[in-house]
Design a protein around this nucleic acid. Structure first.
Lengths: 187, 187, 187, 187
DNA sequence: TATGAATGAGCCTTCATTCAT
DNA sequence: CATGAATGAAGGCTCATTCAT
């Protein structure tokens, strides 16, 4: 370690930054080593391969994010927490978005998957009658869209940060998306 | 030309398919040539470079998509049209999603940009009093999310196609997202 | 044929120009076709291959040049004729210089080889006692150098054209190079 | 490193040899790697590109050659030194000849340019009255020709090595070329 | 642990040449 | 004769990974 930061940490930080800025495939091990201030070979003392680095980086942070959401009882709190997470570290948020979308092995459903956590909450809402929409998968997709697309707009500069200031508006939109006027719900 | 299909067309079809399946960077010119049933060099009689192929493929279809939306007057029609476009050619839809997100040069606003078309429609709604939400950029992001995330869910098998069957539900959700209860709208 | 110029001629002119400007290997058949205003395939109606074009172009002009020198009786006339040839068509002159130097198959000695013609003249001078230097090969090299290096200087802009104005000075230098003071001639 | 020779050195030696034997463009990186006993990628640890290798090889040796000539006071010494340089490493000599002629960026005048060093010497001779020819550029070209064309003859087997044995004869020829009979000097 | 030179497979692209029209 | 799309071998170069130090 050096400068009060472990080599591992330096690699992770550089990786996150470069992956978001240039894309995973477009970032070479040489780029990573240079940005982290280490030798190329050193990376392999910490990760078995570049793919491994990507997978570890994703899995760890994705699960940590899921755990942040896991305890929450209300949809409003989920939206607020997601936005807070984004505002704390937009780069990490963007990395999760990016890599999830891309050619990576699908993460299985479960407690480590933020999407699963959200879906479970919605399913409970439906079961308990608090949500009238009957299709939980559709509801999850809509709520996801209401959160992620504004986040993307912030990333691309089409909306000014912090994202948190939209929490109330978007919470309301989520709520109403999940509780459509009777005759609009599809069979 | 051969087999009643122009070489150009064969390249475009193969490219769309492979780019979506494996990613743009992950698809080699070798892959493309093989899938299109042509020699590697032949690709360069039709496109100046691989990048050019990607850019042309994107620009052409993105603009065509924008034009499909350009004439529509109502948000419901936009949602229906977007979903119809998706159901007609999910691969093309996914390609546009994928490449837009990636490291490509940002497409300027205007009539050739579907997002701009949507935003203009929302702005008109706000101006005319049909929409009470005051932030058009936020509204655009929410509507986009309500359409794209369910589309993504279909692509990933978390929702069964066709996407069109959700049109009514999602239109309603869009509408209500754009017309929040008074006290939820942020300043 | 077109524009009063045969296709063959158009190819030859373009080839000479491009070969001199960019080098033979660096000039592609595509370049040639474009510069000559013909299709790529058309070149092969006139030459069996690109190598053939180069060889024909060289052999024809090299031999023609040799024939221009063949009848001359005096060294002064050779110098004057070489310089006149250069000034008439510097590009052609430069092409012969360039290609001779390069990886082309060596041209055999004989009447079609300007160097052989020059050497024969010098050998006759030695035989007849007009030249005191005994090594004809060395004499040929020196005379060649006295002509070609000033020509090269003109090509590179280190000397102002026309080359012909140096004819007298260089003729004199050639003559004195071939007739060294007694004790300087090597054994 | 391996076999008591640095990788860099192995590359340089192989490059010099192949460039002279087949030409620069005609020598592929594959050829170079094979001849040097290294992997293709290894070349790029030492040079940024093939062009870079050529340029470095030329610039370094050209300048070193110029420095060998820089201190000399007499034209005889220059001729002797040039010929000694040739006889020590004909391949290197030929490489400098070849590449200088070719499409490389022109080397600026100055202390690192052997031609400039020669020209400066001749200019001094003219200034000091030791040389009667008034055109220094022409004189430089002639002296260059008297040295280089015999060297070329040796390379092509038209003259037997070593070149040094012609030093006296050629020095005399240079001297007389620079001091023409009065009425032959051009205006 | 850390290093960085070496590797060789694979990438994008160019090229001379062919051939159906 | 002329065309130009198609070819596929070869070119220069990059890359993730290994290993002796």
């Amino acid at each position: 370690m050096r400068d009060g930061q472990s080599t591992r940490r330096r690699i992770d930080d550089a990786a996150l930054r470069l992956f978001v800025a240039k894309g995973v495939t477009e970032t070479s091990v040489r780029d990573l080593a240079q940005a982290a201030g280490i030798a190329e070979g050193t990376l392999y003392r910490h990760y078995a391969s570049k793919d491994d680095l990507v997978a570890d980086l994703f899995a760890g942070n994705y699960a940590a994010f899921a755990r942040r959401l896991a305890g929450l009882e209300r949809l409003d709190d989920v939206v607020a927490e997601v936005f807070r997470f984004h505002d704390e570290n937009p780069t990490l948020f963007r990395f999760l978005l990016l890599v999830q979308h891309q050619a990576l092995p699908r993460v299985p459903d479960g407690a480590d998957n933020p999407v699963s956590v959200l879906k479970a909450l919605i399913e409970r809402g439906i079961r308990e009658g608090a949500i009238t929409l009957t299709d939980a998968a559709l509801g999850t997709a809509m709520v996801l869209g209401l959160m992620l697309q504004p986040a993307t707009a912030v990333v691309y500069g089409r909306l000014d940060p912090p994202l948190s200031r939209f929490a109330a508006t978007i919470s309301a939109a989520c709520w109403r998306a999940l509780n459509p006027p009777k005759d609009t719900d599809h069979a």
